[in-house]
Write a protein that binds this DNA or RNA. Structure first.
Length: 434
DNA sequence: TGGGGTTAT
DNA sequence: ATAACCC
């Protein structure tokens, strides 16, 4: 029997996903999802570029935050998103490196994506006859070799191990993996044994895993805002959410969110693994204590734009929309951002690719118009963040139609259509079972 | 709370 | 086009 597996991978902050629809030929409800999470990705990249850091407690700093840290530092009490002062207090020997420039993390992320895609193609020819697990089994549950779903998950655990091996051998990166029947559970179970280990969840232990969460906030898909709204309804544990009136929840959160998160609370998640491909937007942002003049803002915007132009020219695609985002100073803990966006005029887009025409000037002009649209520069203001974003990325310049366009368009559409590929995995053991 | 990125309205 | 939400 031939089945295809659905593999999904996420990485901290830099996002890459590799995917495949997992469909044992007829039954689309029994998927196998592999979720891979690299251990403290930024810190690993830093330790690879400077091996002296390897056995020291290391934190990656952005502004006055330690955004992530290695496991040496965690043993000594440092946590993700900890204040630099608190972290130094907890751990005076903590070594800090600046991680505000994401360039090297991005580069490593692209390498990981490449390796995973190569490995996925290789799997087609690999013979995986898995009758044993790789890594941990959640709850130490015993395996039933007569249960077809158990067998599929075991195959998944072997593939996960191969993925992690490839990433370690070729890039020196370690990470965790979780194998389960949907994305939610795969992600949750991936964190049970850390770091650099993997765990498979057999369906019978699903409820145990879900109820091991202490609070609904720990459920992936329920963020700060949603958790706050749930709290206002008296919902705090997963059990609270499971048993709460669906009608009232729908009224409070809207039918879409309500139904989705209540399903999550039971461990149900039918969301597909979506091919992410290259990013759909590029942005650069900078935060600071205070920006209160237009000149100051313009200088910062020029810096952000310059970096962005460099990145977009490497990508090859062209943005058709530009956006400016600000954050105003607020005494409240969580302040919102405001943004203004507009289309990029086609003559500016054309200058992006070729020639040495100055593209900065017209772009800065547009951005400053957006800026003045949000901020009344005749009144005092206090900003704490500026961000410039290129989005609505298009591969080709389709503004002009030439005689060649027909051919170009058709050759593109054959390669970029429908999105989902399928990888066949021969599993000799499965023939015996089914 | 950084520096992102995607989804919903 | 903008805000909300998530990691």
């Amino acid at each position: 029997m031939i089945c295809s597996l659905n593999i999904c991978m996420y990485f901290f902050a830099y996002c890459s996903a590799v995917h495949d629809q997992v469909v044992p030929t007829r039954n689309s409800s029994s998927r196998v999802i592999i979720h891979v999470d690299l251990d403290c990705f930024y810190a690993q990249v830093e330790m690879i570029s400077n091996p002296e850091l390897k056995d020291k407690p290391l934190g990656v700093q952005q502004k006055y935050l330690v955004v992530t840290c290695n496991y040496e530092a965690r043993k000594l009490g440092v946590r993700k998103l900890m204040n630099v002062r608190d972290a130094k207090e907890k751990c005076p020997q903590l070594v800090l490196v600046n991680g505000e420039d994401l360039t090297r993390y991005r580069e490593m992320s692209y390498k990981v994506t490449e390796i995973v895609e190569k490995k996925l193609q290789q799997l087609q020819s690999d013979e995986l006859s898995a009758v044993s697990v790789s890594g941990h089994v959640y709850n130490n549950q015993s395996i039933n070799l007569h249960d077809i779903m158990h067998i599929r998950l075991l195959v998944g655990s072997q593939i996960a191990a191969e993925m992690r091996e490839a990433m370690y051998n070729q890039l020196g990166l370690t990470g965790c993996a979780g194998v389960a029947c949907n994305k939610l559970l795969a992600k949750l179970v991936s964190g049970v044994f850390k770091p650099n280990q993997q765990t498979v969840l057999l369906p019978e232990s699903c409820q145990d895993l879900i109820h091991s969460l202490n609070h609904v906030k720990e459920m992936p898909g329920i963020g700060y805002k949603t958790a706050k709204r749930l709290e206002a309804l008296g919902i705090s544990s997963v059990h609270d959410l499971q048993t709460f009136s669906s009608k009232i929840l729908e009224k409070e959160l809207g039918i879409s969110v309500a139904q989705r998160i209540q399903k999550l609370s039971f461990g149900e998640d039918n969301s597909p693994v979506t091919p992410s491909g290259p990013p759909q937007s590029f942005s650069e942002e900078d935060s600071f204590k205070k920006c209160s003049s237009e000149v100051e803002a313009k200088t910062k915007i020029e810096e952000l734009l310059a970096s962005l132009l460099k990145r977009i020219s490497q990508d090859g695609r062209k943005p058709h929309t530009i956006r400016l985002v600000i954050r105003r100073y607020s005494s409240e803990k969580y302040c919102c951002r405001e943004s203004r966006q507009c289309p990029i005029p086609s003559h500016v887009i054309q200058k992006l690719g070729a020639g040495n025409y100055d593209v900065m000037t017209p772009m800065v002009d547009i951005l400053m118009k957006l800026f003045r649209n949000m901020v009344n520069v005749k009144m005092p203001f206090h900003l704490t963040l500026l961000s410039v974003c290129f989005c609505n990325l298009k591969a080709l310049n389709t503004t002009k139609k030439g005689p060649m366009d027909y051919y170009l368009a058709s050759s593109l559409s054959t390669s970029s259509c429908s999105g989902k590929r399928s990888f066949k995995i021969k599993d000799s053991h499965m023939e015996n079972i089914s």
